[in-house]
Amino acid sequence: MTASLTRKEKFDRYLKSLKFALYCITHPFDGFWDLTHEKRGTIAAANTILILTLLARILKLQYTSFLFIRVYWPEINIFLYVASVLFPLGLWCVCNWGLTTLFDGKGRLSQVYMATCYGMTPYPLIQFPLIIFSHFVTVDEAEFYTVLSALSLVWAALLILAAMSQIHEYKMSKTIVATIATGFGMLVMIFILLLFFSMISQGIAYFISIGKEILFRM
């Protein structure tokens, strides 16, 4: 089907799917059902939302008023900062998909990723205006900023929950259990990754030390 679409049509579909994110955040259950079942979402749009989220997080550091964010620049590593979003996101998607496939989840890995990214929409939507807004308040009015900032996170979290229930065709109770299980699964994965890396590095260190020993004795 995609092969038969022209460039223009593809772009229109992309724009439409991106616009659909705005529908999803106000009508989560209806929206996220249609997202996969009616194929109204695209991975391209999901990527766009993810990039916007990352951009919002980075620009926030630099441009928010110092009343709210003070950055000790020598300790900021932009790659690590970006990874602090991407790594948990990757873990979440893999772990959620892995668990839900075992328990009658209907969503595929790409759909989990897409729905999660769509769920993040409120973050850039609220944080970008907040960057500007932060310059127009004093310490006494800082509450407005904190409340709005918290809202963007809570909203996104609730949306992701709703999204998971819709793409896997779960009831809400089962979704919550699956989400908690995913959290534990992520911890287990981190543990295994740490174990893996430390064993690899020790293995390498072993051979390096053998090599050094041989060189000393030659």
């Binding site: 110092f66 009343l67 310490v139």
Partner: peptide, 18 residues
């Protein structure tokens, strides 16, 4: 004030400026 992160004095100045 902004250069040295003095939020209270900054807010005092900004309030008047605004």
């Amino acid at each position: 004030f902004r250069l040295k992160y003095d939020e209270d004095n900054y807010s005092k100045a900004y309030k008047q400026y605004r």
